[in-house]
Write a protein that binds this DNA or RNA. Sequence first.
DNA 1: CCAGCTTTAGTGATGTGTCAACAAATATTT
DNA 2: AAATATTTGTTGACACATCACTAAAGCTGG
Lengths: 159, 159
Amino acid sequence: MADPQRLEEQRLDEREARVWRSYRGLGQELQAALDRQLVRDAGLSAAEYALLVPLSEASGDVLRMRDLGVRIGWDRSRLSHQARRMAKRGLLVREDCADDARGAMVRLTAAGRAAIENAAPEHVATVRRYFADPLSDEELDLLGAVFERLRDRLAADAD
Amino acid sequence: MADPQRLEEQRLDEREARVWRSYRGLGQELQAALDRQLVRDAGLSAAEYALLVPLSEASGDVLRMRDLGVRIGWDRSRLSHQARRMAKRGLLVREDCADDARGAMVRLTAAGRAAIENAAPEHVATVRRYFADPLSDEELDLLGAVFERLRDRLAADAD
DNA sequence: CCAGCTTTAGTGATGTGTCAACAAATATTT
DNA sequence: AAATATTTGTTGACACATCACTAAAGCTGG
């Protein structure tokens, strides 16, 4: 017969299940709201926005694919596919890398800069509206600490 | 000249930006960890798991597409595509709806039940490991309250 | 040097998510 | 009942994500 204590450990109690559902639901709904806002107000997808932000902050509007990937936490394949689609759309152009022939650079186009500068204010306002503004300073601090602890737990295992 | 107060409102201050990045990073990393665990230990995708859970809890292992969609918060198209792929994989079968000729039912197969029963314990354990266990009771309560407030804020606009 | 390993990037296949268009059945209005 | 509107589900097109594979360039130790 199995140890009942052992089985108990595997389930979520009512409180845990409720918070987990809230967390997942919030993630789903917030992401959906941000996606809708971006495409509606600026004609950009979340993936396009994710690439445009670090590119627009880079000196010379240029970044190496490798460095861009590290900044946003994407693997090479995902980034390569996305860059190809965005180059096709005219938001960026690909260039050779001077110091490393393996490398590839991506450069923001004028259209890309216009797109991100048009999109950013409304996007940030939406983040404020649905995330930052409803939270008190104390809650922000506590959330920050909790989220970082959970990220550390994930990183510690590095599954 | 623009009102400087107005511009200030649109940006995120350092504290807000940090917590926002933590939240987004956690969401990304936690989702990735759960996805990896599911496919590695049970050969299921997160989408497949999402459908199998309510189906396995339904009386008779059958649900109407409409009701299944409402439960997991998916639109008809997304659910239809996913059900088609899972029927092809043999995790469920489609059936006609007796009381409403428009309707469609999905029924869990033996393979589907085996898959979810095999997957659930390890999945729940992973949620405990990376989410519930590192949090104190007080933190859980506070997170639950905060997440629900943010969800209410989103629902209030119903963008 | 150069043989083998690592790093970097791209590609094709497949699974997933979203949108618009469609079709059929049901519900509502007149 | 007939016309109209709503609900329900599917489909095709396309954007996005992940995996396995390839290939070229750089690095490392003999």
